[in-house]
């Protein structure tokens, strides 16, 4: 079972502890939402799970597909079936989306060098071009991706919305067991949001993908219905619930909802926390 099991995870950045004991399990076919005010550590969790070198694991464990995830290199984690849809995807000038996708698909098939001539008949072989095209066409249809977009250089000069769509296109092509979507809703207009949500729902229902949807706002959750909602405050999950919890947050704001759980927002979230977190695009509190 390709479950992602996080136990008592502590993460520090440049010596400062950001996550202070996270416990969370994402199973195949489950959708989890991780919500919380800015600065609570949501993005730190996604980077730490993917293995960014800047994020130091100081305590705890993470297993994925039965393996110790923290022992693995970034690319090994990816090939094992973990995917991160980035909040801020990097541009790679000169490399078209198509070529990038083909290389990534091949890497997932185990083609890790240009030595594609191998006498061993069981050695991994690169995907045939017609097969690749078919996969790509299907993924683009699912996500209504403009054909011009894949000829352009990866994320180079893309709008925020284009970047997010291409993140989800990559997810559809790479077929992960568990995907972390880090603020994928930011930068998307309502139509794009619906399409992206539909794509995620399809992967979850048809392919049994597990999803950890990190978001500040409810609006993505109007289209992706999580079974589990977790609220992260100051590096700890302080509240768990079902889809109603997200709706409650939408209606009442973090402070009031958390009061019900007997949790007080730390002072640095101050006045911001009183606002209802529904107005997309308004920065709240410290940056993530």
């Amino acid at each position: 079972m390709a479950d992602l099991v996080i136990k008592n995870l502590h993460v520090a950045v440049e010596g400062k502890e950001i996550l202070r004991g996270i416990d969370l399990t994402v199973r195949e076919g489950e959708i989890h939402a991780l919500m919380g005010p800015n600065g609570s550590g949501k993005s730190t969790l996604s980077y730490a799970l993917m293995g960014h070198p800047k994020y130091e694991i100081t305590e705890g464990s993470v297993t994925f597909d039965g393996q110790d995830l923290l022992e693995l290199e970034v690319d090994e984690r990816a090939r094992l079936g973990l995917f991160l849809a980035f909040q801020y995807p990097q541009a790679v000038p000169g490399v078209s989306v198509t070529n990038f996708l083909r290389m990534a698909v091949n890497a997932h098939r185990g083609v890790l060098s240009s030595d594609t001539r191998n006498d061993d008949p069981d050695a991994p072989k690169p995907i045939k071009i017609p097969e690749f095209r078919k996969l790509l066409e299907a993924a683009m249809d699912l996500l209504k991706v403009d054909r011009d977009l894949i000829r352009r250089y990866l994320n180079d000069g893309f709008s925020g919305g284009e970047k997010k769509r291409v993140e989800i296109l990559q997810m559809a092509m790479l077929n992960p067991h568990v995907a972390i979507l880090d603020e994928t809703d930011s930068g998307l207009d309502i139509d794009a949001l619906k399409i992206v949500a539909e794509g995620v729902n399809t992967l979850v229902t048809e392919r049994g993908m597990g999803a950890l949807v990190i978001t500040h706002y409810q609006r993505l959750l109007n289209h992706i219905t999580p079974e589990f909602v977790h609220i992260l405050v100051d590096g700890k999950i302080v509240a768990d619930g079902g889809p109603d919890l997200a709706k409650q947050l939408e209606a009442d704001g973090y402070e009031k909802v958390l009061e019900g759980f007997g949790v007080e927002l730390p002072a640095r979230h101050g006045g911001d926390a009183n606002k209802k977190p529904k107005t997309a695009g308004v920065a709240v509190g410290a940056s993530a």
Binding site: G94, V95, A107, Q170
Partner: peptide, 26 residues
């Protein structure tokens, strides 16, 4: 950050570097 991004898609460090270079000379 570019390397991390490419590696998070399953490319080895060498493959990621080679891709950045081929894009650079494109």
């Amino acid at each position: 950050e570019q390397l991390f991004y490419l590696r998070s898609r399953g490319l080895t460090e060498e493959q990621a570097n080679a891709m950045i270079v081929s894009g650079f000379v494109e």
